[in-house]
Design a protein around this nucleic acid. Structure first.
Lengths: 205, 205
DNA sequence: AAATAGGTACACAGACCTGTGTAACTAGGC
DNA sequence: GCCTAGTTACACAGGTCTGTGTACCTATTT
């Protein structure tokens, strides 16, 4: 038996496992027994760290709430890079859509869940907006909303279709919207990967 | 057997009620007891019409699968009208996102659910594509995909934010994409409602 | 009137769920 | 050694869920 993990590690292990199962299978589909069994601990231990399943769900969503980080890349690269990141995530086997949208879809009228989901969506929109302001876009508010639509649209489409090309489609739409707003989008900003040149099937466009 | 017109009403009543509850509260959140009680019938009667809850869920999704209907309006009006319809639906109190996306989010790995969800998304994309072909758009495939992204993006955003303006944002993005593809989008095609009472801000760009 | 179809009432099996209670065990710190 | 904190095993309460079994009722048809 490996040495018992450090004290604060247990709570993290619970949260990490709950995160994975909740995200992959859904909130209602995963019981606390399942989570405990997956880690190999007793259900009692889980309840010693989280007072209820609701608290665990809240912690799961809080954990998923990672605000977009600052970067030294150009605003255009950051905006378009978002879609490249999406494409990479879509290609991962364990991608299952947006955890916040999924939680709202599953729990519906729950106030606190909706609140954190709105906060998350708004944080990304504001991130877009600030980058657009840096670019001197006139109506940065409206364009930021539209870019957010493309992000969530590609996520929903990929959730259903399992087609990472949805991210590229969104990226190309974003480029059109940016150019239309007077932003110069040159080829170097567009390149998703510098050197990798896989034999790509002629996907749409 | 004489075709009794009111006899088959029971199955429809069950399906209608199940539809409403499943959509508003989620598939796992609604039990067959709840559905039967809502109609005022016994659970036994429900199971006499549907062999299992899964069958009821399948019937629910099949019922939600309404292919876009043909219209004599111009293609541009039909495309942009989609977003006007969305805005109306977003404003309704009982709008809770796309039932197919929600079902996939909730049930996850279920094959048959995914299949019907993909079919639904693809039917809308093809509807867009055919309209774009009528408009002489060169890469109708790609643009149809992008329009579908805007639709699903606005649905996801409205599900979280409860903001019907997401539909207008999507519509304006769609107009930019259409113009970029060489489609002439004049003001008459744009008007959402015949008698515009609201003072309209000059559209961005 | 009798038969048939469909609905009702209601209990129940079996599974799963959240959350608790309790006694015993194990490790490190004093 | 001894104490404390965390963990474990396990039972269990109380609820919900799907699905079935059974006997009864009611209306229409023949």
């Amino acid at each position: 038996m490996a040495p018992l993990p450090d004290k604060p590690a247990m709570k993290d292990r619970i949260l990490e496992t709950a995160d994975r199962l909740f995200y992959l299978q859904g909130l209602r589909a995963v019981g606390v027994d399942t989570i405990a069994a997956e880690i190999g601990i007793s259900k009692r231990t889980l309840y010693n760290h989280f007072p209820s399943k609701d608290a665990l769900i809240s912690a799961y969503l809080a954990r998923r709430f990672v605000a977009p980080r600052a970067s030294d890349k150009s605003p255009v690269e950051q905006i378009l890079g978002t879609f490249d990141s999406l494409e990479r995530r879509f290609s991962a086997k364990d991608f299952r859509g947006c955890p916040f949208v999924n939680a709202v879809a599953e729990l519906g009228e729950d106030r606190s869940v909706r609140k954190v989901a709105v906060a998350f969506k708004e944080s990304r929109r504001l991130w877009f907006r600030d980058l657009l302001i840096q670019l001197g876009v006139a109506d940065a508010e409206a364009l930021a909303t539209q870019l957010a639509l493309l992000v969530d649209g590609s996520i929903a489409q990929d959730l259903v279709r399992n087609d990472p090309a949805m991210a590229r489609a969104a990226k190309e739409a974003a480029m059109v919207l940016l150019r239309n707003a007077g932003v110069k989008v040159d080829k170097t900003s567009v390149a998703a990967k510098p050197a990798s040149k896989k034999p790509r099937r002629s996907s749409t466009a």
